[in-house]
Every structure is written in C-alpha cells, then in structure tokens.
Amino acid sequence: MRPFDSGHEDLIHDVAYDFYGRFVATCSSDQHIKVFKLDKETTKWELSDSWKAHNSSIVSIDWASPEYGRIIASASYDKTVKIWEENPDQEENSGRRWNKLCTLNDSNGSLYSVKFAPSHLGLRLACIGNDGILRIYDALEPSDLRSWTLTTEIKTLQTPPANNLQSDFCLSWCPSRFSTEKLAVCVLDQALIYQRGKDNKFQIIGKLLGHKGLVRSISWAPSIGRWYQLIATGCKDGKVRIYKLTERLANGESASESSNNMLDDFAQDKESLEPSLEIELLSEHDDHKSEVWSVSWNLTGTILSSAGEDGKVRLWKSTYSNEFKCMSVINAQQ
C-alpha cells in the first residue's frame, strides 16, 4: 500500500481504528477530523468525510464499540471533548456525515487524551488534560446519546503543571471483560493504575514505576487467552517498558479463575471480587535510543509496536521463553 495524503493542513496528532479496523479516524491541528474507510478491493484508504470539529488542535480521537453505534469522541486543546455520530443518510464527503451529539466542557485545561471504555462497561469515556483531572463520563440513557453525565472526577495532580513546562497526559482502559474495571493513567512521569472499588469510586491500586521522563504513550494489551495483564509505555527517557499485572484474590485464587464462572453473567459477582494487584516490570528496552512517542498492541496482545524519535518503528513479540524480542524494524528515515 502506498502512503497517502491525509488532506490535513497541519500536524496529525492521533489516528484511531474502528472496532473491525475497516475505518480510521484522524485528527489534526487544523481542527478537523477525517474518517477514511478501507476499500477491500484496492486495499486503499478512501476519505469518507472531513469536518471542522473543534476550535483548536484536536489531539486525541477514539471510536466507541459498534454495540453503541458509530460514534467517535475527540479531545482538543480547546478544553472540550466532543462526541460525534455518523449519519448514513448524509452523503460521504459532504462534511455533514457526522453529527455532533454532545460537547463535554468541564475541563479547565487543554485536553490530551480521550478513550472509550470497553463495551462491557457501557457507553463510557475517560479524558484527561492539562488540569490534571481525570474525568469519566457515562451515557446513562442508552436511548439518548446526547446526554452524558460526568460520573467521576479525580485529581491526579496536586497542582496542574505550569504552562511553560512541557507536559503530557495519556490513558488506556483495561480491555478485559474478566477483570474489574481499571484504567491506566499517565500524568507527566507517573503511570497510575486506577480501579473501581466496591464503593463505586476509583482508587489507585498500583503504579508503573521506573519512568524517568514524561510518559508519552500507554497501551493496555488485550489479554485474550492470558490470565495476567500487560501494559506497555513509551517514555521520553527513551525506553519502552512492558509491565505484567497479576490480579490475585484474597483466597489466593487468580482473578481469571474466578472469571471462568463469570462468562454467563459477568456482572453477578463482580462486586464481591476485590483482587489485589502485583505489578512487575517485565522488560525495558532502550533500542530507540531516543524519545518513544507511541506504543500500541495488536488485536490479541501478542505484538507490540513502538515508534520513536529515531525514526524507527519496532515490533516486539513475546517468545516462548517469555521475553519480548524485537521481531522487525521499520525505518522512516531517508
């Protein structure tokens, strides 16, 4: 496949695939969102629509699960998150195919990241920005996607970072249906694991230690076929880190063993489970020798990608001997 011009008129900040990987949404400093769809015949990405979505740079974008329709959330330096729904009655490339459902404007600072929760948690999203407050919103009424309620606000920083200092914020939800609701939140050089407790409130249950600079990217791996969780981070200190999280119940049983019984009705015993978390730094790689800008996992959490300031993409794969090894290097530098 050939490279293609996105049509954006300024920096591209984020790209996000829909659930099946057939559509990709991009956002940019040009304040526009673009949606491309994959043409299976030509294997090319074709522009489906483009529209001005915010009044400042759009830095993060995400798709909701198809169980809730075709919905996109975007976060911008204009301090708002906007939620968009596709209207198939409108022509493609008309600029009107995506209707704004809602604007969430509670943030006091530029927003950096927005992510929908996995579908089993309902239509829910989390966002974080320069004010250091993690906000979680829910569409409590599935019949009314225009109505979103701010259900959680967590102050992750004592004081927001000074404007003249470089900062970064990012987050990633635990995608597993068989684990208690969790999300990883990166605030400057800290990576925190939050979990919803019995009281329905989020608490920090662990930290991903070792970062010596701003955490630029975090990605929670799908844990298909595994009883433990993996989280990767990309850091300004030049390292890709992979953490292994093991949940254990008070009785010594692993959380996943209990979850075997939860296949039929996941919710039934969720409240009674209060697993503790063991966090282990599985591996640390400084191959980029420079700032690591992004990390992402594949569908099954078996391949990790990292991209760095060195102009290289590295693909990491877990081996039989339980190590992550660089399986491929892709060069972007002439």
Partner: peptide, 22 residues
Amino acid sequence: GDNGKLKFKLSNLGAYNLAYVT
C-alpha cells in the same frame, strides 16, 4: 539524520497499520 515525532498504530487487521509523523 533528522529525528522526528514518529507514531505508529497497530490495527486489528495486521495488514493495515499506519505510521505518521507529527
């Protein structure tokens, strides 16, 4: 010799991942 803010996103479809430079 130039460095750059290279980013990469793995897709659920292994053949259609995207790289871009911010």
